[in-house]
Design a protein around this nucleic acid. Structure first.
Lengths: 211, 211
DNA sequence: GAAGGATGTCAACAAGTGTTGGCAAACGAT
DNA sequence: ATCGTTTGCCAACACTTGTTGACATCCTTC
């Protein structure tokens, strides 16, 4: 119960750095500011350094508190990571008949928006590659968030997992080359270019008859 | 000079574990077996654990030698990594008029071959995500090996980098979801399915008129 | 005002890290 | 047979890591 309420709070704090309390999401604590600062610092460190090199000491220093506070509020490093990368992709609905034929473009542009103002996704990808817990969290996102979207537009229910996986491969591949590996030609692509090139790919993976 | 010769040796030892000496690539040393064992162990560790968690002690233990030997032969951990992930993608030629229209399929299937019997690529991807040197090495592969292939089939020379980056995003994205994150639906895809879905994508990124 | 819990700091631990230098044995050349 | 070099092992250093417990301080509640 407490766990659930805390998770909701995190998702809410996710985008903005406000420490505002959410009505009905548990009693506000005097330490909410500190908790928020820790989470913000943790997200930044995990995003830029990955799991191992994002040390608790560095995170604590960024948040201007003692390392032991991190342990008190999040038990251990794994707990901190779990709390720091709770995320909701807020995927748009594409079940409408008119939107279904535009699903590719809509999803690609939504993903670009998400990646560009949310370092949680970069953190998740960086950590998922070297950390088992991170990898499992990404698998969960594919299963719980990407797969339902594929189900909305994909004709044959049996092909939904495969098509969702194909979509994930292209979207994550772009994020990898552009935001993580920072390959120059991928960084140089304009937003409109990416959309124009990738939208038909995603659209085909989701709706085209299986080849 | 010595550096170059050593690099060539590494590339040669790359695929097979033989300790055979290559004619004209420097004098064979009595320690070549040990050096090879170290490199093999290092590749495996880097591939499964990433850079930070692949400790020199663990690698030395796998190779049945003392950690200090690693330092003697490869200076430091960075040097070991650099030596362990030297790789040549051996990309096929697709400049022929007949092959040009099949470039997508040929490249996708070649990549699947490469990834499935070569843990160096997994090591490179795992490390590239959290390590600067690894990321730069991947950028080098895109620049020196993928880009020339794009040049062979792409009409407008000015668009070559962008198209190569798009190809890289899809190929690396598949490798990421299938071989690194091991997302179940991506792992479950049959080789023929992957080829059938991805080949048109790559073909379009390389040869279609810019949208 | 006193009691009790929440919040925060400090110092320290045990374990593991990359890295170094010294020393013994095996080898190749003379 | 002897010298210098190569190969290997051992022990240790200096440092960083996650994590813990004791202590001081603040705020809330009676």
């Amino acid at each position: 119960m407490l766990t659930h309420a805390r998770w909701l709070t995190l998702v809410d704090v996710n985008g903005s750095h406000s420490t505002s309390t959410v009505p009905g999401s548990g009693a506000p604590r005097r330490s909410d500011a500190t908790r928020g600062a820790i989470l913000a610092a943790a997200r930044e460190r995990f995003a830029t350094d990955g799991y191992e090199r994002a040390t608790i000491r560095a995170i604590a220093k960024d948040a201007n508190i003692d390392p032991s506070m991190v342990m008190r509020y999040y038990r251990n490093k794994e707990g901190l990571f779990a709390a720091a990368v709770a995320i909701d992709l807020r995927l748009p609905d594409v079940s409408g008949a008119d939107r279904r034929q535009d699903a590719g473009r809509i999803l690609v542009e939504h993903f670009l928006d998400m990646w560009e103002d949310n370092e949680v996704l970069t953190a998740l990808l960086r950590v998922g590659v070297t950390n088992q817990a991170g990898a499992e969290r990404m698998q969960g996102i594919l299963r719980d968030q990407l797969l339902p979207v594929a189900r909305q537009v994909c004709p044959d229910p049996e092909q939904v997992p495969a098509r969702a996986a194909l979509m994930a491969s292209q979207l994550l591949g772009l994020a990898l080359t552009r935001y993580v590996l920072r390959m120059p030609p991928a960084v140089g692509l304009a937003r409109a270019e990416i959309s124009a090139w990738l939208a038909p790919t995603i659209q085909r993976y989701l709706t085209a008859p299986s080849p």
